[in-house]
Nucleic acid binder design. Structure first.
Lengths: 327, 327
DNA sequence: TTGTAAGCGTTATCAA
DNA sequence: TTGATAACGCTTACAA
């Protein structure tokens, strides 16, 4: 393991000269620089990240913290984040689980993007208080060292609900995420707002979990409560995963019931899996790549102490055959 | 940012005593230790990872390098890896892209798991030569610092091919991965072996890319080459993603052709998406979680200089309705 | 049981 | 333009 010391010895210069040359400083003559670079290559010199960051107090690494690695959802988001960070000279690492949180306070990473409801807000604030820079994608958190890049949940939920109503549905089920989820709370609030200002609409709220099982359980509950001949039900699942779970459950246990005809389902996220559903799931779409890219951008600004404002990701309604008109 | 120096000053002891106390050394009396710990907490002391690893020459972090973050495939694998590493006291970070390779030589991570064909084998060998520990999941590489945990491609491909033959198919298409892929080469070799020892079987090889597009293109090529009334074709796509692409293409462009009846498709990987395909895709299954866990285990052994042997992940045939009997 | 001091591999501030 | 030298924050002989 050659160090700058070895290079210095070999080149007959001091370590500071080597350091300058290696970093392309104009203080060193081109000739010496070249000579030093040649020796460095010859000795297979590789800098030591720990030593560098001990001194510079930065690692040029950004961490993104996810609830799990399941990934069905995050692909494009990570891609967007990575692209932007690469352009800005940062590396991206993906972390998951409480054990990994130390990387932030111990300065293994220069900043973090949070998309993990299991990450305590109090911890985040503590880190921010210590000067660490954060971007949160899953909660509201007002702090000079924290920036928010949030989905426009209200718009999305409003679009979804209004769509169901426009199609003539009057009995609407909302399958939420876990109670602790910020996104879920926002969406539910918007749904209730829409329902309240529309006469004759009945809303049933079912607590879900953002997983397939939640969708299945909700499906079970809904089917159990319905009698033959009753008006078709319309269900707004607060994410696609639950919507898919619901569709699966229905296909499996109620072959006589057709989604988009006897029961109508709309999701949220437009994940890849949704495009394979039969019939095509109606959902709320937004650019995950852009979300990630914007988060990265904001984080870098925060690190550079540039001024930042909280940002919002806009959403659109994507109509699929899983929602039909009420007869 | 409190350091051990600050704690030492506050406690009226030397920094070495603080260090010993913090690391729970029995050399320090319980009373001093307690006092030091209290002060550390009071000062909000957090160790500095760079300083520690500069000295200890380890970070307790393992990196896994993936081709991309798309994740449709990796979820369980990462989960398995993470669980095992956590148990062994290591952190897992997920990396992608050539830019991130520096983390290994610059000692930001203690070792790496490679599942990324775009990672040059020469680079890997160079790193291994420098003493870095690696586990490869996607190639054969003989080196004392490299361990292999590979899929049993031959068994999988053999199972798949024999299944098609047993179902009476005599005209078999193999849609490979990119030519550079080790897995693809292994699978093709096995397919050819099976075909060679079975009389009357015709094999057509189509080069794919392991992506949906490859499956679509292959579907197009196959459909273009077939005339009405011809015996049903049987296709072995070397991964599920291409198989799904193929099924989609057929559903979209050839509504008269039924998968599992007029054309028979089997994949490889049993990815989640496959369980949603209509009809259910036949495929080769294996435990991705176990794969990841084993890779982690081997890497830790390598790091601890324990003896290791290359490992193999066993596979099984999973029959779905996408393959039917030849009429 | 505790303290002194060297060293890990850099960067960066001075002087020369 | 280059060289000494002092940090950076920690671990760990070795001394006391």
């Amino acid at each position: 393991m050659a160090t700058i010391k070895d290079i210095a010895k070999q080149a007959g210069v001091s370590i500071s000269t080597v350091s300058y040359a290696l970093n392309g400083s104009p203080k060193v003559t081109p000739e010496t620089t070249e000579r030093i670079l040649a020796i460095a290559k010859e000795l297979n010199y590789i800098p030591n990240a720990a030593a560098r960051s001990l001194k510079t107090r930065e690692t040029k690494i950004i961490g993104i913290f996810l609830t799990d690695f399941s990934g069905a959802f995050y692909g494009d988001l990570l891609q967007g984040t990575k692209e932007t960070l690469t352009r800005k000279g940062y590396e991206l690492i993906v972390c998951s689980g409480k054990q990994s949180h130390w990387m932030l306070p111990e300065r293994m990473i220069d900043g973090a993007i949070i998309l993990d409801v299991t990450f305590d807000s109090e911890d985040l604030i503590r880190y921010a208080d210590r000067g660490h820079k954060l971007v949160v994608l899953d909660r509201e958190l007002a702090h000079p060292n924290i920036n928010q890049v949030l989905l426009d949940n209200k718009a999305g939920a409003t679009l979804a609900t209004e769509y169901l109503i426009e199609e003539g549905h009057r009995e609407i089920y909302a399958v939420t995420g876990p109670g602790s989820s910020y996104d879920s709370k926002q969406r539910l609030q918007a749904v209730m707002q829409v329902v309240e200002r529309t006469a004759g609409v009945q809303l049933h709220v079912i607590e879900g979990d953002f997983n397939k099982e939640g969708g299945e359980l909700a499906a079970k509950a809904i089917m159990a409560g319905r009698r033959d001949g009753q008006a078709a039900a319309a269900v707004f699942c607060f994410n696609d995963e639950m919507a898919i779970g619901m569709m699966n459950y229905i296909a499996e246990h109620h072959s006589d019931i057709q989604v988009g005809e006897h029961i109508h389902i709309i999701g949220f996220d437009n994940m890849e899996l949704a495009s394979y559903s039969q019939p095509r799931l109606s959902t709320i779409d937004y650019s995950k790549r852009k979300w990630g890219a914007l988060a990265a951008e904001q984080l870098v600004k925060l690190i550079n102490s540039d001024a930042v404002e909280n940002e919002r990701i806009y959403v659109t309604l994507l109509k699929g055959k899983s929602v039909g008109t009420s007869k």
